[in-house]
Amino acid sequence: MNIFRLAGDLFHLISIFILIHKMTTSKSCSGISFKSQALYLLVYVTRYLDLFWTFALYNSTMKIIFIGSSAYVLHLMTGPFKPTHDPNIDTFKVRYLIGGAAILALLFPYKWTPAEVLWTFSIWLESVAILPQLFMVQRTGAAETITTHYIFALGAYRALYIPNWIYRYLTSTFWDPLSIIAGVIQTVLYSDFFYIYYTKVLQGRKFELP
């Protein structure tokens, strides 16, 4: 554990808190992509299968929080707040993301065991799971400020993992190329968003695309 990893995980927790806070206070999930949220649940369930055979207090607790909160968000979106979700603007074709992640997982896992292939699948899928959400923001041309805070916190989490990986490599030669490549791709996908978030939202203006 190092400060970058800890900060990254905290941003991940903050993003989930912001998302649930936004939904429960506004009683609405407008502006949130159901498809991205469904992909995240798929990511957590396929990555954290090792909950059944590995226990570490910090990691296991976080894993349960991520799976549980993700399932809760989907419950809110399909149950109480379903009328506020507009499927007509949530039209990204996720089958290509799932298919691409599945192909990469089958071709290049660390080991060809079901758990390792699913772990690799989750790493690749996470790297692109935000795309339906970013696509939705792009289609509508604007986003509520709280939604932009959510996307920022979620992006900051994986961005902070990059110095964490550098630190771990330098201090213990820990080296996880799959996570690193996918994590860098994930961060790059957020980069446009980060730029607009920085130049607009942080200066008190609304998040609107040029």
Binding site: H12, A115, W119, N164, D176, P177, L178, S179
Partner: peptide, 10 residues
Amino acid sequence: EGNEGNHDEL
């Protein structure tokens, strides 16, 4: 050398 399934991150 890879991480070889030693997944101690989230």
